[in-house]
Amino acid sequence: MLLRRIYQFLIIYCLGVGLLFLLKYALGLSDYVIPSPAEIGRTAARDAGPYVLAVLNTLAVAVLGHLLSIGLATAVAILGRLTAWIGSFIRTAAYNIQAYPIVAVAPIIFILLGDGLSSRLLIAAMICYFPLLLSFIGIFSEPVADIEHFYHATRRMTWRLEVKIRAFENIHKISTVLVGSATMAVVGTIVAEFIAATAGIGYSIRIALYQSDLAKILVALFLIGVGTSLYLVSLEGLGNAFQARLKRN
């Protein structure tokens, strides 16, 4: 699984870099615009260390933000599954807010909270929160009539049991949504760092952009790709192990 994800990323990365080199040599662009392969190699050797630390920093914030939004989305979706007005209100609000690009709100968060950890964490959580919430509301609001009927008929149904049944029956869907939203959490963190933070790989890319140093940006992109692949593979592994444990007899 890990190798497959890394391969996929490497193919896309090499295609992208290959296209850049094609443009460079076809149009005769200078090393200042698109660096030579040797220059990229030298930059990688020089900056890979600090960049790896920056990627780890970004991933740590992304994971925290992701966990935060999973917890919040689960709690709100459990409330949102209610047929009462509060459930209807939460569902409508989530659909409407989800349609708004959360990144556009990021500057306000930096103005209010500063450029520290809390802003990065909040933006990472917000970016992946609404897709998670909508998926969870859909899952927790959909009755599994063939299983739930017995508990309703015998008056044994509780909200905990209802959530457990619906989560169990949709475990594959939940696992897919979690992996999908993990990418969004990483993207959100990098965007936040790129806008105003003072740490993380997004911040490093911003500095490289000010220096017009494409070699640094390419090295950063490579490390982001590898780091994100590792995180997604870990999540998929956890999801598969959990599903296998549930299905084991």
Partner: peptide, 10 residues
């Protein structure tokens, strides 16, 4: 009770 009912899988 009907014939399509299921027991939880856990």
């Amino acid at each position: 009770t009907y014939n399509l009912e299921r027991l939880p899988g856990w």
